[in-house]
Amino acid sequence: MSIPILEVVDLHAAYGRIEVLRGVDLRVPRGAVVALLGPNGAGKSTLLKVISGQMEQTSGDIHLAGVHVAGAKPDELARLGLTTVPEGRSVFPNLSVEENLQLMSYAGVPASQVLDTAYSYFPRLHERRYQLAGTLSGGEQQMLALARALTSDPALLLLDELSMGLAPLIVDELYETVGQIAQTGVSILVVEQFARTALRIADYAAVMSGGRVVATGEPDEIGSIMADVILGGVA
């Protein structure tokens, strides 16, 4: 079996004295979409923060494509091909759409190519290219955020709560795009509270609870035990 694109081994992390991750083990195989599910406060977003370099672990290891990364800054990881779309609206509200897209070229793809790809996937962004991103609707902002995932040709894509605060129809639309990205061979780790949406596009799924991964498996299996996990059955 080939080396997984992401391997997390016995990862611990804490906010001050409060330990949030208590020994997380997780693998994302190359080219696979892994859905990370779990109730509020399970540590999902914290895990993404640690992987993307925004937060430092207290112990444990992270391997990206077999390379042990320790103490790497988020901007270094971003330039190496790790694209993170954090939760909330991850756009710069006071820059125009086009300027937002221009900044995406930091990940290594030339700006003109970024613009082409983004506009071909989302014609709506082209219509609004001179508009400030903060004045876009929530769904359009998330499109803009996803455009970074589309255009930067990442080795690994981390998506945190894409659905937050959006209408179900728009969520479906966005996840369709995620599915398209996955088909191009990008490895994706999706964090999502709405299990069904994420499981539809996932190859594997993992469930976190209380700072640990408590279950892993095929989407179908996980889907059938989700209720138990959330209600505290599996541990």
């Binding site: 901007d75 971003a78 954090p86 991850s90 756009v91 710069f92 930091y106």
Partner: peptide, 9 residues
């Protein structure tokens, strides 16, 4: 923070 995730410094 977001700029850092974009790869900016």
């Amino acid at each position: 923070d977001l700029l850092q995730l974009y790869g900016g410094r």
